[in-house]
Design a binder for these strands. Structure first.
Length: 397
RNA sequence: GGUGGGAUAUCCAAGUGGCUAAAGGAAGCAGACUGUAAAUCUGUCGAGUUUCACUCUUCAAGCGUUCGAAUCGCUUUCCCACCA
């Protein structure tokens, strides 16, 4: 587990919960934990440049193996000197293994199944052709061409992409499947993770560290088994993945349950979660890093993140609402971001109504800065020993 | 002055005898968004009520034909085109 150039140091532990804060060291710098990983799936942050994102003091971003292997291809990224250089992001970076996309796009919009949503009319068609012991055969979302991705290939692609933290290749099981399917899928993911580890070992040169992924869906015994499996193998860190249930409340319970089983000495990531209350809940049970498209997607859709206690319990305001037409206040007068320092709600409301893309860009800046400040607030509360009180104030819904 | 064409809900625009409170857009109002095929998607969108149902008033205005009209006829008003 000791990986050259990488370290995870826990500096403070909360007395009343499993929350902790510390530092995750990578060859491209430090990540102060708990922290949030911003999503730049296709090698680009949507609606914001890496320069502007860096200005929010975001510390780490993520890109995706699945998207980049299909377009422009790992070799083109390598030709550009790797993801860091290509994107002009000199900080820590993570890549997802591609497992999630293959399976979420695969069943025709099962991202929604994984999240427990049944009735989702999407434009997605089935692109997952077959799962074999070797890997997954699927159609490219770009041009329909047939592709295969195996644990070995995912590792090789992620090597070329060059992120600091990389994820083992796994199968992401949907929510609405049987317990047997979840158990079998988990076991296959474990075999794939072992192969990921073996392949990773062939070229490990201290520039990258590998995370294992804890599966098991909503089943306690499976989560325990999966956490033990990951803990028993030489992964630098671990991520909690797979189905987290049907509702937000259930997700909180499963995160709490799964966190109880993991190796607490390793950095622990919660995949795909990023609501304000969800983050407080995750931290409470020992999660160190989160990633989610929520803050940036919400911004493009007109949602400006705000503290629930100052917004009638809601985690964001919809700037499209008529109430903001004449509201000359900034989104958040306590926020120091470029958006809040310079523009009114009324103006941003207008930008969205007029379909000016600047609106989404400004809210992306705000939401990114909001998340950065939120994580800093969380870390500070852990250091001060005020975590549970702060959690109570922030996560009440 | 003459001859054609047209007037449909906030706007644009289908519909030319019953299945029409009236297709589609747009605007408006709201909701969703959580390992990004999302700067996207969904609902609502004449009025009213006891709102998963019922009632009322609509297709420029009036009169008429018909069991029944936004749809057919006549008159009026206003627009547009061409001819004088």
């Amino acid at each position: 587990m000791a990986v050259p150039n990488f370290a995870f140091e826990i500096a403070h532990r909360d007395g009343g919960s499993m929350a902790r804060c510390g530092v995750l060291c990578t060859p491209h710098g430090k990540v102060h934990t708990p922290n949030f990983v911003f999503c730049g799936t296709k090698g680009a942050m949507k609606s914001i440049s890496t320069l502007d994102l860096a200005a929010t003091e975001a510390e780490i971003i993520l890109a995706n193996t699945y998207h980049l292997m299909l377009q422009p291809g790992a070799d083109i990224v390598a030709l550009n000197g790797g993801l860091h250089k290509m994107m002009r992001w000199n900080g820590p970076m993570l890549t997802d293994s591609g497992g999630f996309q293959i399976f979420s796009l695969g069943h025709g919009g099962v991202a929604n199944e994984i999240k427990g949503r049944r009735n989702f009319s999407s434009h997605c068609n089935k692109t997952l052709l077959k799962i074999t012991e070797d890997g997954a055969i699927f159609r490219s979302y770009v041009d329909g061409a047939k592709h295969m991705l195996t644990p070995e290939m995912s590792m090789q692609v992620q090597k070329k992409l060059g992120a600091d933290l990389i994820l083992a290749f796994d199968e992401c099981t949907p929510f609405h499947v049987s317990r047997d399917y979840t158990a079998n899928s988990m076991e296959r993911s474990h075999r794939w993770e072992l192969r990921s580890l073996a392949e990773f070992g062939k070229f490990a040169d201290g520039t990258q560290a590998l995370y294992g992924i804890v599966h098991g869906g909503i089943y306690e015994d499976l989560r325990r088994e999966s956490a033990n499996f990951v803990a028993g193998n030489d992964f630098f860190g671990q991520a909690i993945g797979g189905s987290l249930g049907e509702t937000r409340e259930q997700m909180h319970e499963i995160v709490a349950m799964a966190c109880g089983f993991v190796d607490r000495s390793r950095p622990t990531h919660l995949l795909g979660i990023g609501g304000i209350a969800d983050i407080w809940n995750g931290v409470k049970y020992g999660i160190d890093t989160f990633d989610c498209v929520h803050p940036t997607r919400l911004a493009r859709h007109g949602g400006a993140l705000c503290a629930p206690f100052s917004n009638a319990g809601k985690e964001f305001m919809n700037i499209n609402n008529a109430a903001f037409r004449c509201d000359t206040a900034p989104i958040d007068d306590s926020c120091d971001c470029y958006c809040c320092k310079n523009f009114s709600r009324s103006y941003i409301h207008h930008l969205f109504r007029a379909r000016e893309t600047l609106g989404g860009q400004l809210l992306t800046v705000h939401n990114a800065r909001f998340m950065v400040r939120l994580m800093a607030t969380i870390r500070q509360s852990i250091e001060n020993g005020t975590f549970l009180g702060a959690c109570e104030a922030w996560a009440l819904r």
